[in-house]
Design a protein around this nucleic acid. Sequence first.
DNA 1: CTTTACCCACTTTTT
DNA 2: GTGGGTAAAG
Length: 782
Amino acid sequence: MSDYLKELNERQREAVTHIDGPLMIVAGAGSGKTKVLTTRIAHLMRNGVDAFNILALTFTNKAAAEMKERIEKILGNNEARNLYIGTFHSVFARIMRAEATKMGYPSNFTIYDSDDAKSLLKGIINENNLDDKMYKPQYVAGRISAAKNNLMTPAQYQQDHFIQQEDARSGRPLIGQLYAQYAARCFKNGAMDFDDLLFKMYQLLVNFPDVLAKYQHKFKYVLIDEYQDTNIAQYQIVKLLAAVHENICVVGDDAQSIYSFRGATIENILKFQKDYEGAKVVKLEQNYRSSQNILNVANRVIGLNKNQIPKNLWTDKPEGEKLKLVRTLTDNDEGKFVADAIAEQKLRNHYNNRDFAILYRTNAQSRAFEESLRRMNIAYRIFGGLSFYQRKEIKDFIAYLRIVANPQDEEALKRIINYPVRGIGKTSVERIIIAANESGKTFWEVLQEPQLAGMKGAAAAAIEAFVVMMRSFQAMQQKNNAYDVAFAVGKHTNMVKELYNDKTVEGLARYENVQELLNSIKEYTETPNEDGEVVEDKSLGAYLQQITLLTDADKNNEEDQDVVKLMTIHAAKGLEFDCVFAVGLEENIFPSAMSLYDREDLEEERRLFYVVITRARDRLWISYANSRYRFGSLVQNDPSRFIDEVPPEYMDRSFAGIAGAKGSGSAASSPGGAARSYAPKQQPAKNTTTVAASGNTDLSRIAALNKAKAAQPVAHVPSANFVASDPEQMEQGMRVEHMKFGVGTIIKMDGGAHNRIATIDFGAGVGEKKIMLNYAKLMILN
DNA sequence: CTTTACCCACTTTTT
DNA sequence: GTGGGTAAAG
């Protein structure tokens, strides 16, 4: 085990064996960055540093898990479990859990994900009677997020001239006010959003010197992965934590900085040497991943960017295959082409599914590939997109648990107070919110005394029943574990039963998802604490805080499933694959339409292109479609400008026609294939579409007319003496008159005592209708 | 109060 | 094409 140093090259070893003092590792793509980080941590421990004194921060849970695993492997014991390794967010959440009460938060504080944050913000925008077209929650959330990532309080935001000017110019001068209200409401709800985990952490360290001292002392060695992606808040926190010992090691690659939209600033890595005088700098420039050809392309592409630390990435691997550029007619053809190519490569070069990745710019692009892979019977898995925990049914279920752990959580309450339906509707909720805002009480407190909000009768009774139920769950929490509470919630709210009774396909999936959630909670509570000294917090509160920070990619780490992987390029950073399909290389997609007009933005897109190129070990395809469906309609985009930045000598061009099209070969060999259009087959198609189109307009007009006629109830003029009768008296067989539907016969009665529903046959033209007697006006005729 | 039927906005990228 | 939000009917 002690020969781990032998597996390193000279530069790597230099970085690993540097123990005390600041160290910056500039690690090019595929240069063994993770290996260096993990080996360095193992080396520290070998040299007497206690695992408890090492903090390693990453950006994804996956990276953290991988590091931990690899360190364990090097060390050959389980000392690694005492390390503090995790994402910025999860490590800070863990610390905040211990320290939150100092800041006035409950230790069971809720973590709001972006959906929670947006819905809270939306409510606030409405309360202020602002136009949510102008004040789009997403936009406002973005401004607030940026402020927090720059460590700016609401007061500072409102006093900052530049920002005020910006907001005024964009026609949204009140954002500062919204920020203040949003922050106050989060606090009242006992909740932190993702940005707060950083922002509040910073405030904690600044405002409580004893806390700062404690963690400075604890974390004698600090390591930061992907330093180029840190934002101001992360940068300042790290600076504070490392200030005493200055045993800080950062690893990064400016060429792979792709998170500036999240406030990351490349400045942090560029000024490291100024921040820490005498810092040692090690450059890792040997690439162990990609073939010569792939690397050449990557180097040329990134060379077009102006801002960068000079590097010379090289490899001693063979030249390898050229890149393949593929043009298809449509997005569906692109999907088909990729699936075909995978099938072919598997046969010809003995690859497995797991050796392939399909990488795209936006999550929405996955559909065509899913369909074609499924058709070809190729196993795949999509990473990212909607995470398991963002599904409606899961969020609903978790909302209950959140209230149990933290009754202040208004967002969770609003979410489920009437789900499953229990007769607490919109007006009741509005009243409660108003009462809560006026009295300064929390939503939950108002629920305790619904009379104060002017509630009475059925609504008040429903609220009371709801409160009693929630209290019983909260009482359970004291004695029972998270799973027992969750099980009771599923049972007593009727949620599980309701989903079970929904026999539609989606209903079934929802039911299964909830079962899966319950299972995962069970697993969480039953997994015994690891035998190291670290006693993991198994409470409901800890569970909830943890899962909010989980991404889909983290959920199952069954790495070895033999599946093709589909994900965004962002999600693929740090990963590598034998064969990579970089798809959707079209203007407005990649580079994104949002980045076309700003040099900095465009350079970030180019870095993204660099990232996708450098994911590939052996083979790389680049594809684009002439036209594709976006927002449900067909659009055409030019080929991406990045295609022209690939030196032609490293790239083969081809054209993938429609499946089975004989023209595919000839098109591929024709000159300037990429620019050539596929004309011949389009002539007849054009004709048919025109014919169909003209026919369509008439048809659809007629259909629309018919529909309008049918939808309009047959004009029935109510009798002059029409008086609504008492619904209590209505029974099967009676003849009744309806205000709109006319005269009919009650053929069936159902529904509960207070919600009777009559099925009435109104005869030809109207037919049978189900009428809720409480609301419809009917007159008994007999 | 609840359900349904339209209408619209949505697409960068993530903790 | 989708999912969420709103208006009108039940």
